[in-house]
């Protein structure tokens, strides 16, 4: 009886870990080099534009490096032109972008 309970708990833990791993692995991280970032208050527009976009999981900004990091959820991808458009609508200029699977 006790052994059966331990086996069930182990199986449940394994499935949970696998499930969680699958769900995280599906997103993409976009690292954008953005010019014009001179103040955190002004950069808020970038965060606002991305967080209003469906499928975006998180946005982080490094002002010193001119870096905007956007992580998406499963199945959400961006074309480079779309990223440029969002950054431009926020009042800045995207110079380049790299992406990697999460």
């Amino acid at each position: 009886m006790k052994l059966s309970l331990i086996k069930t708990l182990l199986l449940f833990t394994a499935i949970t870990l696998l499930w969680s791993n699958f769900s995280f692995a599906a997103g993409i991280q976009y690292n954008m080099r953005v010019d014009g970032l001179a103040c955190p208050f002004c950069a808020y527009g970038i965060e606002k534009k991305f967080t209003k976009t469906e499928g975006v999981d998180s946005v982080d900004i490094d002002l010193q490096k001119g870096l905007v990091i956007v992580k998406t959820r499963e199945g959400k991808t961006f074309r480079e032109e779309k990223l440029k458009e969002i950054i431009n609508d926020a009042g800045f200029t995207m110079k380049s972008v790299t992406e990697k699977d999460l």
Binding site: D35, G36, A38, L63, Q64, G66, F92, T93
Partner: peptide
């Protein structure tokens, strides 16, 4: 209306 903008690293 902002009619001109020149962006570079950490500068606008």
């Amino acid at each position: 209306y902002r009619f001109w903008r020149e962006d570079s690293l950490g500068l606008q």
